[in-house]
Write a protein that binds this DNA or RNA. Structure first.
Lengths: 88, 88
DNA sequence: GTGTGACTACAAGTCCGTA
DNA sequence: ATACGGACTTGTAGTCACA
């Protein structure tokens, strides 16, 4: 499981900090694309067919979305998935 | 463009077929990058700290990895996450 | 218009094996 | 060296009421 990942992957940084960075990076990308599209969290959530609170948690880096979720986001935001993982 | 065509066709396809396309797309990208790095599934799995059977299922499009998993893959494969979501 | 904790269902990911 | 499966634990998806 992920405990193994931690043991192996800790080179110079703390594993939990890296994980947070990744999630927050995606969250900020989502927020940037959402605002660029002129959408509120509520309207984005409605177009995706998910709850607004999920979008909220996502943008704040509290969620670790799957590639399927990223793809749904990209569709609604009219961007590529790669734009949502920018900086990673 | 391919992505645009896909986005249009989406309205006429079953949702599960789209999901399969996304998962398989990631799987093929992973396989391509892994072979380019000269790694076996076993060595990739070991370096990531995940089970080898997971890598197998991933490359065959049977898995829906999270962004954290994609990031771990990218690190070990020495590529960017965007390279793993190429074509999406 | 957004942040948050608690919640259930189901998928992510493990560990064992087979071929 | 890889595909594939079963049974298992952990975590994500997705929701809700309330701040």
């Amino acid at each position: 499981m992920c405990t193994l990942v931690r043991r192996i992957k800790v080179h110079h940084m703390r594993a939990s900090a890296m994980a947070d960075d990744v999630r927050l990076g995606v969250g900020l990308n989502v927020r940037r694309c959402r605002l660029a599209a002129g959408l509120t969290q509520a309207s984005l959530a409605e177009r995706m067919g998910v709850d607004r609170s999920y979008v909220s948690g996502l943008e704040r880096g509290h969620r670790n979305p799957t590639v399927l979720t990223l793809w749904h986001l990209a569709e609604v935001l009219n961007v590529r998935v790669r734009d949502l993982v920018d900086g990673l």
